[in-house]
Amino acid sequence: MFEARLTQGALLKRLLDSVKELVTDANFDCSETGISLQAMDNSHVALVSLSLRAEGFNPYRCDRGFSLGVNLNSLNKIMKCAGNEDVITLKADDSSADSLCLLFENSSNERVSEYELKLMDIDQEHLSIPETDYDATVMMPSAEFQRICRDLMVVSESVTIDVSKDEIKFTAEGELGTGNVKLKPTSTIDKPEESITIELGQTVSLQFSLKYLSNFTRGTPLSDQVMLCLSDNMPLLVEYKMDIGYIRYYLAPKVGD
């Protein structure tokens, strides 16, 4: 028996919205500790890793670990039927998990809707992501990162990210010319969500596809801050942290000429 009730249903709507462009089918791995998902895009350039802790649900029940194979487009269509204020409950009888039940209850509980999503068999290779202590770890407002990606997209498909002790610089070069955005660390004590911090092991400079980075910024509504972790010749980690868990995106670098 599997049951997970999330009072903040909007969170689940946003989470699915932030992965739907990247991944079409994925396995939700459910265990007594919570729900996780790991999936790559078709071109194996980007990977999303989602983790929601059992404590964030009330109640949460998962008698034994199992996987829910889901077509994310279909799940998204059903999630569109949930109101932003609804409480969302996921249920599956783990034995013959051939469908996932979704319950949407509105706050005054006089409107309850129930949907059944047919599950699929998805054999997806799992990647082992090595624990890395990164050359550079940058924290910044998530809206700022979203804007930088959107702005520099007008110049080029690629962005070079340079991190030094007291600056992170995003540079784009294209047909029309060039553009760059430089951010300096700030420690606005009164508004921590607006702060920019740089933890530097050593300077690092890497190039990435802005198409993918812009896609990752669909996670912006999930958190005020975004964490960027970079190491030479390693995939970029973009993390949006929530009370209930996190969503992490990994992006393989582009190798300059």
Binding site: H44, V45, H126, L127, S128, I129, P235, P253, K254
Partner: peptide, 14 residues
Amino acid sequence: DSSQKSLLNFFGKI
């Protein structure tokens, strides 16, 4: 244009 690497160059399959 520069060449896009694959994650499989960096992360091993389990």
